[in-house]
Protein backbone atom coordinates (compact mmCIF):
# COMPACT_ATOMS: atom_id res chain seq x y z
CA UNK A 1 0.00 0.00 0.00
CA UNK A 2 1.39 3.41 -1.02
CA UNK A 3 1.77 5.84 1.84
CA UNK A 4 1.12 9.58 1.62
CA UNK A 5 2.02 12.12 4.32
CA UNK A 6 0.14 15.40 4.40
CA UNK A 7 1.98 18.24 6.17
CA UNK A 8 -0.52 21.09 6.27
CA UNK A 9 -1.55 23.49 9.05
CA UNK A 10 -5.04 24.17 7.74
CA UNK A 11 -7.36 21.56 9.22
CA UNK A 12 -10.05 21.67 6.53
CA UNK A 13 -7.64 21.12 3.64
CA UNK A 14 -5.73 18.50 5.62
CA UNK A 15 -8.80 16.48 6.43
CA UNK A 16 -10.37 16.82 3.02
CA UNK A 17 -7.21 15.63 1.32
CA UNK A 18 -6.93 12.78 3.80
CA UNK A 19 -10.53 11.76 3.11
CA UNK A 20 -10.01 11.84 -0.67
CA UNK A 21 -6.76 9.89 -0.54
CA UNK A 22 -8.20 7.29 1.81
CA UNK A 23 -11.19 6.87 -0.51
CA UNK A 24 -8.75 6.33 -3.34
CA UNK A 25 -7.05 3.61 -1.29
CA UNK A 26 -3.84 5.21 -0.07
CA UNK A 27 -2.52 4.91 3.42
CA UNK A 28 -2.48 8.42 4.86
CA UNK A 29 -0.79 10.21 7.77
CA UNK A 30 -1.21 13.86 8.66
CA UNK A 31 0.94 16.46 10.44
CA UNK A 32 -0.25 19.95 11.40
CA UNK A 33 3.13 21.63 11.21
CA UNK A 34 6.61 21.14 9.83
CA UNK A 35 8.16 20.01 13.07
CA UNK A 36 5.72 17.15 13.56
CA UNK A 37 5.98 16.55 9.82
CA UNK A 38 9.73 15.81 9.96
CA UNK A 39 9.21 13.31 12.81
CA UNK A 40 6.35 11.62 10.93
CA UNK A 41 8.54 11.30 7.81
CA UNK A 42 11.00 9.26 9.84
CA UNK A 43 8.35 7.17 11.66
CA UNK A 44 5.93 6.64 8.84
CA UNK A 45 8.28 6.42 5.83
CA UNK A 46 5.90 7.83 3.21
CA UNK A 47 6.15 7.25 -0.56
CA UNK A 48 5.05 10.83 -1.18
CA UNK A 49 4.72 14.03 0.82
CA UNK A 50 2.16 16.77 0.23
CA UNK A 51 3.83 19.78 1.80
CA UNK A 52 2.49 23.21 2.66
CA UNK A 53 4.94 26.12 2.80
CA UNK A 54 3.61 28.71 5.22
CA UNK A 55 3.15 26.91 8.57
CA UNK A 56 3.86 27.56 12.24
CA UNK A 57 6.84 26.05 14.09
CA UNK A 58 8.69 24.98 10.95
CA UNK A 59 7.86 26.07 7.42
CA UNK A 60 7.99 24.04 4.24
CA UNK A 61 11.45 25.24 3.22
CA UNK A 62 12.81 24.20 6.61
CA UNK A 63 11.19 20.79 6.23
CA UNK A 64 12.95 20.37 2.86
CA UNK A 65 16.26 21.41 4.42
CA UNK A 66 15.78 18.98 7.32
CA UNK A 67 14.97 16.18 4.87
CA UNK A 68 18.15 16.95 2.97
CA UNK A 69 20.17 16.88 6.20
CA UNK A 70 18.58 13.57 7.25
CA UNK A 71 19.23 12.07 3.83
CA UNK A 72 15.52 11.83 3.03
CA UNK A 73 15.56 13.89 -0.16
CA UNK A 74 14.75 10.86 -2.27
CA UNK A 75 11.09 10.96 -1.18
CA UNK A 76 9.04 12.83 -3.81
CA UNK A 77 7.36 16.04 -2.64
CA UNK A 78 4.43 18.00 -4.07
CA UNK A 79 4.08 21.50 -2.68
CA UNK A 80 0.49 22.54 -1.96
CA UNK A 81 0.59 26.19 -1.06
CA UNK A 82 -1.39 29.33 -1.67
CA UNK A 83 1.76 31.39 -1.91
CA UNK A 84 3.83 30.70 -4.98
CA UNK A 85 6.10 33.60 -5.81
CA UNK A 86 8.62 32.83 -8.54
CA UNK A 87 11.43 33.17 -5.97
CA UNK A 88 9.75 30.59 -3.75
CA UNK A 89 9.25 28.20 -6.66
CA UNK A 90 12.93 28.63 -7.54
CA UNK A 91 13.84 27.92 -3.93
CA UNK A 92 12.08 24.55 -3.81
CA UNK A 93 13.55 23.64 -7.19
CA UNK A 94 16.95 23.85 -5.51
CA UNK A 95 15.76 20.88 -3.40
CA UNK A 96 14.76 19.04 -6.56
CA UNK A 97 11.03 19.67 -6.09
CA UNK A 98 9.23 20.44 -9.36
CA UNK A 99 5.51 20.41 -8.48
CA UNK A 100 3.88 23.40 -6.89
CA UNK A 101 0.10 23.34 -6.60
CA UNK A 102 -1.78 26.51 -5.80
CA UNK A 103 -4.79 25.34 -3.81
CA UNK A 104 -7.24 27.86 -5.21
CA UNK A 105 -6.35 26.80 -8.74
CA UNK A 106 -6.87 23.07 -8.17
CA UNK A 107 -9.68 20.77 -7.11
CA UNK A 108 -8.97 17.94 -4.68
CA UNK A 109 -9.60 15.62 -7.60
CA UNK A 110 -6.81 17.24 -9.59
CA UNK A 111 -4.51 16.88 -6.61
CA UNK A 112 -5.29 13.15 -6.52
CA UNK A 113 -4.44 12.96 -10.23
CA UNK A 114 -1.07 14.61 -9.48
CA UNK A 115 -0.43 12.07 -6.73
CA UNK A 116 -1.26 9.18 -9.06
CA UNK A 117 1.00 10.51 -11.79
CA UNK A 118 3.79 10.88 -9.26
CA UNK A 119 3.68 7.48 -7.45
CA UNK A 120 1.02 5.49 -9.28
CA UNK A 121 -2.12 3.78 -7.98
CA UNK A 122 -2.12 2.85 -4.25
CA UNK A 123 -1.88 -0.89 -4.78
CA UNK A 124 0.60 -0.80 -7.58
CA UNK A 125 3.92 -1.45 -5.97
CA UNK A 126 6.13 -0.30 -8.86
Amino acid sequence: MKKVLIIEDEKMVRNLMKKKLLERGYEVEIAENGKIGVEKIKEFGPDLILLDIIMPEMNGFEVLRAMEEEGLSEIPVIIISNSGQPVEIDKVKEFGVEDWIIKTDFDPKEVINKVISEIGEPKNNN
Binding site: I53, I54, S81, N82, S83, G84, Q85, E88, I102, K103, T104
Partner: peptide, 8 residues
Protein backbone atom coordinates in the same frame (compact mmCIF):
# COMPACT_ATOMS: atom_id res chain seq x y z
CA UNK B 1 3.54 36.06 -0.58
CA UNK B 2 1.87 36.35 2.81
CA UNK B 3 -1.03 38.35 1.33
CA UNK B 4 -1.49 35.73 -1.36
CA UNK B 5 -1.50 33.05 1.27
CA UNK B 6 -3.90 34.91 3.51
CA UNK B 7 -6.31 35.73 0.68
CA UNK B 8 -6.21 32.32 -0.95
Amino acid sequence: SVAAHQLR
